[in-house]
C-alpha cells in the first residue's frame, strides 16, 4: 500500500514538473513571436536625422520626417516669441514656460502630431488656419495650439511634444 502512495506522489511530482516545464517553454517560444512586431534593427537605425536650418527664413516653417512622423520647425518672429513668453503665466491645461520648449528662442522644433488622437495640426504653410492663438489648429477635433505649441483650447490633453534634438552648429540640428 505504502509503495502505491509513493508511486502516486512520484507521479504527481513528475506531472507537475512536466507541466511547469511546458508552461515555461511555451512562454519562451511566445516571446519571439511577440517581439518580432517591435521596430526592427533597420527602423531603429534611422532614429536620428540632421536638418540644415540655414534656408529657413524668419516667420517660415518647414516640415521634415523623423521616425515616420512630421517634425515642425518654425523660425519664429520676434512678435511670436513675445506672444509665447507673455503667455507663460496664463492658466493652461499643460503649463510649461516657453523657455523650456525652445532651446533657442527663434527656433521652435515640435513633433507635428496632435496629442489628442494623432492628426497633423494645420498652420505650417502661410494661409493655413493657425487657430485662435497664432500657432497651429488641428482640424480633426478643434485643438488650438499657441506659438509655443502649447494646447490652449480644444480636447488635446498635452502640448505638442518637443522631440529630443541638439544644435550641432548654429544652423544645423540633429533630431533624435
Amino acid at each position: 500500500m505504502s509503495s502505491d502512495h509513493n508511486d502516486e506522489g512520484r507521479r504527481d511530482f513528475l506531472m507537475v514538473a512536466a507541466g511547469s516545464f511546458a508552461a515555461v517553454g511555451a512562454a519562451g517560444a511566445l516571446w519571439p513571436l511577440v517581439d518580432q512586431m517591435n521596430p526592427d534593427a533597420s527602423a531603429k537605425a534611422l532614429a536620428s536625422i540632421e536638418v540644415d536650418l540655414s534656408p529657413i527664413k524668419e516667420g517660415q516653417a518647414v516640415t521634415v520626417m523623423w521616425r515616420g512622423k512630421p517634425i515642425f520647425i518654425r523660425k519664429r518672429t520676434a512678435e511670436e516669441i513675445k506672444e509665447a513668453v507673455s503667455a507663460d503665466s496664463t492658466d493652461m491645461r499643460d503649463p510649461q514656460v516657453d523657455g523650456e520648449r525652445a532651446q533657442k528662442p527663434e527656433w521652435l522644433v515640435l513633433i507635428g502630431i496632435c496629442t489628442h488622437l494623432g492628426c497633423i495640426p494645420r498652420g505650417q504653410s502661410t494661409g493655413d488656419v493657425q487657430g485662435d492663438f497664432g500657432g497651429w489648429f488641428c482640424p480633426c477635433h478643434g485643438s488650438h495650439y499657441d506659438t509655443s505649441g502649447r494646447i490652449r483650447k480644444g480636447p488635446a490633453p498635452t502640448n505638442l511634444e518637443v522631440p529630443p534634438y541638439a544644435f550641432i552648429s548654429d544652423t544645423k540640428i540633429k533630431i533624435g
Partner: peptide, 8 residues
Amino acid sequence: FALLLFLA
C-alpha cells in the same frame, strides 16, 4: 523536458 515526460 523530454526526460521528465519520459519518466512521467
